[in-house]
Design a protein around this nucleic acid. Structure first.
Lengths: 221, 221
DNA sequence: TGTTTTATGTGAAATGGTTCACAAATAAAA
DNA sequence: TTTTATTTGTGAACCATTTCACATAAAACA
């Protein structure tokens, strides 16, 4: 069964996140020269269940061989296709503070086809400077430069106080996907995808777990 | 009803993450001088449902007043207590690459009581240098210095290739909570809490959503 | 070639999480 | 005070996700 982008099957967020996990595991397996992998072995490696692995994949097709398992290279490519990372994405990053600066050099992004092509900041000392081969643009020119560079995804790494204002401009420029690192809940129109990255949240989870002797059934997906 | 740390109620991960969200929202409401907030209004602000807010809180007690809502300051303190962020945590950070360096200056951590007291790296050029008032230690002395400083939480920001080795040492030093930024699945004993922060995952979700015209019912908690 | 073993793919059952709906309690208004 | 309007707290209903269990198919072996 082949997935078409028209059919609005409800794939859960957890399934999509696990696909990311499978992809990463398969990349490693490829390096380790494994030719095939069973759902059992893949599950064991990532602390999941074999049924979960098979069920997740079954939403998108049947990629395995009974009695053998999955071909590592082939499954990796299939998942890349499902996740849309078998192509290059044009990304802009706004805000070159601590987090922003770190993300410019984050190799994992490039490895998955997320190419940061544009950098923006409002600080005169940063504007015009060169970060990893990219000249930092003035935030004043945000809208026109986002359009001009055909940016598809924007990463927000500005202070919470100005994040909503920036996002409004990004939306105005026609960008449909935003990854937000500012610790605030942003408003976007319904046709814009917004995801939040909250780095304190997992520390808070650890804190909660320790204080409450929490016993989770299994690790977070 | 009061929560005791002995009773092993199964609180879902989602509930805990939403408590983080409520806490953040309440901090903002406090600044904005709101005295009380209803579940309806809080839900609206964070794109959740009123029933969800009330149900989440009900697992830990009844903190509201019927006909009025919740007292902002009081509820914030209650949640801080539940999450264990009404105290200070002694944190160490290992790896001063891009991500590690950014995290040292991440104000959100300090604001929630997560104090980075120790920094470790294996690079001779970094060892002995001063980051935000902390002298970088040699990773060779990891175990003894973690113990000596009574570190409770360790943040791993080293390359994936060495992460497991480092974690084994951290566990050996008796640390029971680890936040991992390396893109790899780490093994820890069952009594050690491990959480993973995977910054590519949310970009992959955006990519998936765009390629598949995905229509999530609501935004990620 | 036939038999045994392994492992997938998937309905169905079980589990877990969210939303509903309403009694109870308090605030606000009359 | 009494009435009306709000809003909480929570079982029960509903919905989503995970796990089970097994038919099916291919591989491995005899």
């Amino acid at each position: 069964m082949v997935e078409s982008s028209e059919e609005k099957k409800r794939i859960s967020e957890s399934t999509i996140h696990r696909l990311s996990i499978y992809y990463r595991a398969l990349s490693l397996l490829e390096k380790e020269k494994h030719e095939t992998i069973s759902s059992k072995e893949l599950a064991k490696r990532e602390k999941l269940t074999p049924a979960q692995v098979r069920k997740d994949l079954s939403f998108f097709g049947s990629f395995g061989t009974r009695g053998l398992g999955y071909n590592v290279v082939e499954l990796k490519q299939k998942i890349a296709g499902i996740l849309g990372i078998n192509r290059q994405w044009r990304v802009a990053l706004i805000g070159l503070g601590n987090i922003g600066s770190a993300l410019v050099s984050y190799k994992e992004f490039v490895r998955q086809g997320f190419n940061i092509m544009k950098l923006f900041d409002n600080d005169q000392r940063k504007i015009g400077s060169n970060h990893k081969g990219i000249i930092v643009s003035d935030i004043k020119n945000l809208e026109s430069e986002l359009k001009e560079a055909n940016i598809e995804i924007v990463i927000i790494a500005v202070p919470a106080t100005v994040a909503q204002y920036i996002v409004d401009n990004v939306v105005e420029a026609g960008v449909k996907a935003i990854l937000n690192f500012a610790p605030i809940n942003l408003r976007v129109p319904p046709d814009v995808y917004l995801r939040n990255e909250n780095m304190s949240m997992e520390l808070e989870y650890l804190s909660f777990a320790m204080v409450n002797n929490h016993t989770p059934k299994r690790v977070k997906i």
